[in-house]
Computed example of a mutant assay.
Amino acid sequence: MASIDPTDYVEVVEGQTSLKFGNEKQQAKFELGVCMAVYKWEELNTAVDNSWGGANSADKRDWISGIVIDLFDETVVDIQLIEETLLYAMVDEFDTEIDNDSALEIAALVMKFYKEASLENYTNIDIAYGKWQEKQGKSQTHKVTIGSDPNNPDVSDDESEDEGEDDSNVPALVEDDSMEVDEPKGPIIDDDGFEMVQKKGNRRR
């Protein structure tokens, strides 16, 4: 893999208050890219497959996608910040310390997807998603929702059964303390190819 510069960064242009894309499609594609990058992290997948984070291990993986997306609500983000966020999440949620450069590689991929999305170039994001679909055997996709804390869900599983959403549009991000994680097995894509992600909070130290 090509050498990674951990100081590589993106920052807002004049007049903007965050790195979040104002264009709905750009933001949706970028969030999809983040999910695909996080799902590519083998060390995290191993932790999830072995339930190192407990019964909610899969939920925690999707929560990690959410906190990475949250970083881009700020005005400046660099690769090292993303890497540290990933490493802290592994310690906090899976009691696992990563001593290789795998988190750095995932952080660099997130940065790459952000820069490409900023140019409205979604080729690599779509390729990553296509490969993920193949890996899943084109099984039924599940909604990715990011709860405030997978260890302490505030809502019962029964409430997560509600099916009243209109999937034709990407919804606004919801800041709701009662939100829970609902069987996140991967991103859900609407009819226009947009990913739908709900997220809450950034637990980075």
Rank of each mutant, 00 (worst) to 15 (best):
G164F: 06
N23T: 11
A37T: 12
M196Y: 08
K200M: 11
T46W: 06
V110M: 03
E175I: 10
Q16L: 04
D49L: 04
V48G: 09
D177N: 11
A117W: 02
N152L: 09
D70P: 01
I189W: 01
Y88N: 12
E161D: 10
M111E: 00
S168Q: 10
E43K: 00
F113S: 04
W41E: 12
E159T: 12
K25M: 08
N121E: 15
A117V: 11
D101T: 12
E42S: 12
G66F: 02
A2N: 15
W63M: 14
V48M: 08
D73W: 01
E42L: 06
T7P: 02
Y39E: 15
E183V: 10
I82E: 01
P184F: 04
E175N: 12
D62Q: 11
S160T: 03
Q140S: 15
E11N: 05
A128C: 08
K60C: 05
L87H: 04
E24R: 00
D73N: 14
I125V: 14
I67Q: 14
D176V: 09
Q16C: 06
I82F: 03
N124S: 15
K29I: 14
V174T: 13
Y122T: 05
Q16T: 11
A128K: 01
G66T: 13
G66H: 04
E175A: 08
Y129M: 07
N50C: 06
L86A: 04
I188P: 02
L19T: 10
G186P: 02
V10M: 06
N56P: 06
A2I: 07
K131A: 14
Q80N: 14
A47M: 05
L109M: 14
S102F: 02
G193P: 07
D149H: 12
I79K: 01
I4H: 00
R204A: 05
P150C: 05
K25A: 02
K143F: 02
N121L: 09
G193V: 11
A128P: 01
P153Q: 04
V13L: 13
L81Q: 15
S51I: 07
D182V: 15
A108I: 01
A128S: 08
